[in-house]
């Protein structure tokens, strides 16, 4: 928090006028992209979340949108291996989340930690980081081409509108974004949220989970004939 405030004090340029603009799905990526030339197969976030080729801790390559996100319940955060401030705490918290979820991780819930320092955090570094923090298989650590990982960070909304703060790696957003791509249902919580709560939040993404609330008698559903009329 103090560093952020320092940046704010040092800030000389005005905040850019980032008033709401209409986002167009499938906006073009930068040059030298590994984005697939064939369009991603359909899903609510196709063309919005990049389809770059990314690499995991085992050196396995995958297309980000098609292979890792499409149709899945996912959880994202950003980190870097050399971070000594916040990342270790957040990674430890996520390890507790993984322990609570058990074998559902990698089967019906997919956890992705994406590096902010892809030039340094190559697969071997990711593997060491993972082992050091007790991350179990099923939780995937991702790296890739620096320009593409940067684009990925922006498209996943892990940005600050203040450019000085935004480019400072150590000031990165300590949030977890979670969603069900199939339903295009997304939310975010602080990475420091109690792990039991994060597990509950993930349950909100599942339309088949038992509904919380009282059930009306079948003979008395709300009267659907009154659509648009006086009540």
């Amino acid at each position: 928090m103090n560093r952020r405030k320092l940046f704010q004090l040092l800030r000389t340029a005005a905040v850019p006028a980032a008033a709401a603009t209409i986002v167009r799905a499938g906006s073009t990526a930068g040059p030298k992209t590994t984005e697939c030339t064939t369009p991603a197969k359909e899903g609510p976030r196709a063309g919005f979340f990049p389809n770059f080729v990314v690499v995991d801790q085992d050196g396995t390559k995958a297309r980000f949108y098609e292979d890792l996100v499409r149709g899945k319940i996912v959880l994202f955060n950003f980190f870097y291996a050399d971070c000594t401030a916040r990342c270790p705490l957040y990674t430890a918290n996520l390890a507790k989340v993984q322990a609570l979820l058990g074998d559902r991780v990698g089967r019906d819930i997919f956890m992705y930690s994406i590096t902010l320092d892809p030039a340094h955090d190559r697969p071997r570094v990711l593997k060491e980081y993972m082992q050091m923090h007790g991350a179990k298989p099923g939780w995937t650590f991702l790296t890739g081409r620096p320009a593409e990982i940067e684009e990925l960070r922006k498209r996943l909304g892990f940005t600050d509108i203040d450019p000085l703060v935004d480019k400072e790696k150590s000031e990165h957003l300590g949030i977890i974004r979670y969603g069900n791509e199939k339903l295009d249902r997304w939310a975010a919580c602080p990475a420091a949220t109690r792990p039991e709560q994060i597990v509950e939040y993930l349950s909100w993404l599942d339309p088949k989970k038992p509904a919380k609330g009282l059930k009306a008698e079948p003979s008395q559903p709300a009267d659907l004939s009154r659509k648009g009329e006086l009540l």
């Binding site: 928090m1 990165h172 957003l173």
Partner: peptide
Amino acid sequence: FDYFSGSWIVNGKVFDTN
């Protein structure tokens, strides 16, 4: 009420309904 690392805090804490 303050900002911390992409989310929001009250008296230094994030929301916990429990």
